[in-house]
Simulated scan of single mutants.
Amino acid sequence: MQIRKLAYTAIFMAVGVLSAHLIYIPVGIAKCFPLQHMINILLAVLLGTRYSVSAAFGISLLRNILGTGSLLAFPGSMAGAALSGVLYKKTNSIWGAIIGEIIGTGIIGALLAYPVAKYFTGSQVGAFFFIVPFLVSTVGGSILAYFLYKTPIPAILDEKLNAGGRG
């Protein structure tokens, strides 16, 4: 069971890393990536908070190594993934995961991005500068996650995960 979850997480990470250079919104030093937020929500719903946060970290790290991301990917994606997973667990609803992702990335992650931008990249932007672009990115990704969640794909993945050793 654990190996299946790790395999699904790795597949989502591969999709995130491979698509990072195709779909992103450049905002100053930030490269907002809506598919990251979609992945955060889907992993939070399908596998849980640990897997969602781990994938967010892994995608951010690989995007930075490959030059398709910025250091701001870490606070934005990981805060959203964590709150998405926590609220999904409390509400057992896709809407809980979506609200967690939007608040976690769009507000908390954006505010956490300020010290990263200031001290690690030397940017002089204000503390609230990243809120609007992060919100735009996370709302876009959340809409994608909602519509993808309504397809048969999550049910098939959930069925495979819960099949144990049979599949």
Rank of each mutant, 00 (worst) to 15 (best):
A44C: 03
Q124L: 09
L112Y: 07
F57W: 03
I156A: 08
L112V: 07
R4W: 06
R63C: 08
H21Y: 13
L111E: 05
G28V: 11
I23M: 08
A155F: 13
Q124P: 00
I98V: 14
G28H: 10
H37P: 09
L72E: 11
L83N: 01
I23E: 01
L43E: 07
I102N: 04
V15P: 01
L112H: 05
A163R: 14
V17G: 00
V53D: 00
S123C: 07
S70D: 13
Y24R: 13
N40I: 08
A79L: 09
L161N: 12
K150C: 09
T151K: 07
I108K: 01
L135A: 06
L112Q: 05
L87P: 12
A97Y: 08
G16W: 04
L112E: 06
F130R: 09
F57E: 04
G104F: 03
S52C: 08
I153T: 13
V136G: 00
G141R: 06
N64W: 02
A97E: 09
A81P: 01
L35H: 03
M78W: 02
V132F: 02
G165N: 13
A7T: 15
Y114Q: 10
G126Y: 07
L18E: 10
V125Y: 00
Q124E: 08
G67F: 08
S60H: 05
V15I: 15
F130T: 13
Y149G: 06
Y114H: 13
L62V: 11
L6Q: 05
S77R: 05
A81Q: 04
I65L: 11
S60V: 04
Y146K: 09
S77A: 15
I156K: 11
S77K: 05
K150P: 03
T9P: 00
I65A: 04
M1K: 12
H21V: 15
L43C: 07
G106N: 09
L135R: 04
R63D: 05
G141S: 06
K5I: 12
K150Y: 07
Y149T: 12
F33I: 05
F147E: 02
F120E: 00
G100Q: 11
V139S: 00
I29M: 02
F129K: 12
L135C: 06
A56S: 10
G48M: 11
I143R: 00
G28D: 11
V125K: 01
I153Y: 08
F147Q: 03
G16K: 09
G141E: 06
I41S: 01
A117H: 03
Y114L: 12
V132Q: 00
P133G: 03
I103L: 13
V27L: 02
R166I: 15
A10N: 09
G140C: 10
A55F: 04
L22C: 04
V136L: 06
G122S: 05
Y119Q: 01
S54L: 14
S142N: 08
G109Q: 11
P34Y: 04
V86F: 11
Y51N: 08
T151I: 10
F74D: 12
S54P: 02
P152S: 02
L18F: 14
Y88N: 05
S137K: 01
V15K: 08
S142H: 09
A81I: 07
G140H: 02
V17E: 02
I25Q: 01
V136F: 02
W95V: 15
K5A: 09
G85F: 13
M38F: 06
T121P: 00
G164H: 10
I23N: 01
K118N: 04
G96I: 15
Y149L: 11
